[in-house]
């Protein structure tokens, strides 16, 4: 249960090796969370650091591309943790648009993970949270989905779908005691973007995690990281199409 000062007790991370995900979990553990499930492909995830901080950590096998396994996984996590206070689906793949252009099947597969996987995992988690009458689901969207660019429109369109899904889900959960925290980071420097040139206003996984934890505590429903991306994208969204088309990246 979340306590009066916003600390939570249990955390489920889907995509148990995600840098952003682990950075959020670590902060929640430092603030008092005592039980964690890391769900990751192959059933391996870096649990030691969290254990050193005093948390009881379980690692479960999880495959984001197999939606039929997601409801059972949520139940298994709940069996380990009790009520799920925070659920963070943080899995995702980022391929290059050039590769997708040549390999439509790979593109569809990645969209299935980046969007479809989040839909099945998100709905399975939401069902459990709704029954509990409390809990928070963190949805990691991206500014790439706020207005899709030609430079990465496969990834961007999956994020656009996820962003819409999260908004609708948040509205459908209104009044149930369950919260959705929709996170829209800009370019995140890290393992997922290694080898790419950082975009302006890029951030680190730690900065995203700080913003997520702040939102979990304050009750904010939508978080832009960094915060100034919000006014920037208010403008980006309404740029004329032929200007947007010329965006270099």
């Amino acid at each position: 249960m979340r306590n009066a000062l916003g600390s939570v007790d249990t955390v489920l991370l889907l995509g148990g090796r995600s840098e952003i995900g682990l950075a959020v979990v670590e902060r929640l553990v430092r603030a008092g969370a005592s039980r964690v499930v890391l769900a990751a492909r192959g059933g391996t995830a870096p649990a030691e650091r969290l254990r050193e901080l005093g948390a009881e950590v379980h690692v479960l096998d999880f495959d984001a591309s197999r939606p039929e396994t997601h409801p059972a996984l949520i139940e298994e996590a709940a069996a380990k943790l009790g009520d799920l206070d925070v659920v963070i689906p943080a899995f995702g793949v980022l391929g290059s648009q050039a590769v997708y252009d040549d390999d439509p099947v790979a593109a569809a597969r990645d969209v299935a993970v980046n969007f479809g996987g989040h839909v099945s995992a998100g709905l399975a988690a939401a069902r459990r949270l709704r029954e509990q009458g409390h809990g928070a689901l963190v949805v990691l969207s991206s500014v790439a989905g706020v207005r899709v660019r030609k430079a990465n429109f496969v990834y961007g369109s999956a994020k656009a779908g996820l962003d819409g899904f999260a908004q609708g889900l948040a509205d459908s959960l209104h009044g149930t005691g369950v919260r959705v925290v929709l996170v829209r980071p800009g370019f995140v420097i890290g393992r997922m973007t290694r080898g790419m040139t950082p975009a302006p206003m890029s951030v680190t996984a730690d900065a995203v995690a700080d913003a997520v934890v702040e939102a979990l505590g304050s009750g904010r429903g939508t978080v832009w990281v960094p915060a100034r991306l919000r006014p920037v994208f208010a403008v980006m969204r309404i740029l004329p199409r032929d200007v947007w088309r010329r965006m270099p990246r």
């Binding site: 979340r2 009066a4 000062l5 009458g133 009044g175 149930t176 005691g177």
Partner: peptide, 16 residues
């Protein structure tokens, strides 16, 4: 479902 809190008015949760 009705949201309930204690006297401190923190951490509301809904219940029947």
């Amino acid at each position: 479902m009705t949201p309930l809190t204690g006297w401190g008015r923190t951490a509301p949760t809904p219940a029947t």
